[in-house]
Amino acid sequence: MALLEVEDLVIDIPTAMGTLHAVGGVSFALERGETLAIVGESGSGKSLTSLALMNLLPKRVQRKAAKIAFDGQDLTTISQAGMRRLRGNRMAMIFQEPMTSLNPAFTIGDQLTEALLCHRKVGMKEATDRAVHLLEKVGITAAGQRLRQYPHQLSGGLRQRVMIAMALMCGPDLIIADEPTTALDVTIQAQILHLIADLKKEFGMAVILITHDLGVVARVADKVGVMYAGRLVETGTSRAVFKQPRHPYTRGLLDCIPVPGRTQPGMPLGAIRGQVPNLIGRLDGCAFRNRCDFAGPECAADIPLVRTGADHEVRCARLDATEVAA
């Protein structure tokens, strides 16, 4: 049995202009010890999907799903109290911007120990010792002194490491990392990614990595889900998707990445023409067809995910044309 199973996840947001269909029919499964990367442009529904799994969506946002099961437990019917027992305990999240996720009025130590004191029958000394241990584990020196500091006294890289340590406090089975390297410089990004990969192996966790950076995905992910306009348009193992991308959107994303030895200085990088369609109201057919060089009349119909290999599925009506162009 998979650790996490999601079937037909739908997220709708009522607006003054109509219902915004932010996420439509997303399905995936995640095994223990695996890393799933969900990639796509800003606004594609990646972060909303992660918040839906943690049941952290705003009240006015409507979440529906045929199934959201965590270790066999149905998260679509679980009570708020039951969800609070899971959050921060067996399911943890590393948010995109640590400065807005950490409370500026409390010390690092207070915020690190809170989850352990809430979910485990431990005293303050044991919780503090655990906090120091994990701060050292994520590469923070003088960990005992850091516990007395406030978030504004730490750099962006250190705050992100604190967020990772906080997520690990209760030894979760699943960590959701929502663009954990967006606000960091390139050197720190690499350190954080290596850190997450090492900790995953050490603690045997499953990881969902939300990102728009395919370079990141290639280094750390076992499986990839490419998301566009609220729908998964291509899924598969990292090797299958990178070796033979089939959806035009996936190819467009990969073309935007400079390749050492092939992309010469001064050469223009690839770009995807057009813009993401308005998701308010009814949206028929492939949402990418207004930006796609292969679009045809058949793209206006509903398009299911089609299996193109043992570990590869694509939502495209023009697979014959894209294969010829590959």
Rank of each mutant, 00 (worst) to 15 (best):
L3Y: 02
L4V: 12
L9Q: 10
I11W: 01
I11D: 04
M17Y: 15
L20E: 09
G24P: 07
E34L: 01
L36P: 03
I38H: 02
S44F: 00
K46S: 15
L48T: 14
A52F: 02
V61H: 13
R63Y: 12
K64W: 04
A66Y: 08
A66M: 10
I68H: 11
A81H: 08
M83L: 14
G88A: 06
R90P: 04
M91R: 09
A92R: 11
T100P: 09
D110S: 12
T113D: 05
E114R: 07
L116Q: 13
L117Q: 13
V122E: 02
G123E: 15
K125P: 01
E126G: 07
E126I: 05
D129T: 13
R130C: 01
R130T: 01
A131C: 02
V132Q: 14
L134G: 02
V138D: 06
G139S: 12
I140S: 09
G144C: 01
Q145M: 06
L147E: 00
Q149S: 12
R159Y: 13
I164D: 11
I164P: 09
A165Q: 08
C170W: 00
L174G: 13
I175K: 07
E179D: 10
T181H: 15
T181I: 09
T182Q: 13
V186C: 07
A190Y: 05
D198P: 05
L199A: 00
K200A: 01
K201N: 03
M205G: 02
A206T: 09
L209C: 10
V216S: 05
A218K: 12
R231P: 15
R231A: 11
R239A: 15
F242V: 08
P248K: 15
Y249N: 08
T250C: 04
G252I: 10
V259D: 06
G261V: 08
R262W: 14
P265R: 14
G266A: 08
G266L: 06
P268L: 14
L269W: 14
L269Y: 11
G270T: 14
A271C: 09
G274P: 05
Q275A: 11
A287P: 02
P297R: 06
A301M: 09
V306L: 11
A310Y: 09
A310F: 08
E313K: 11
E313P: 09
L319P: 00
V324Q: 08
V324I: 05
A326G: 11
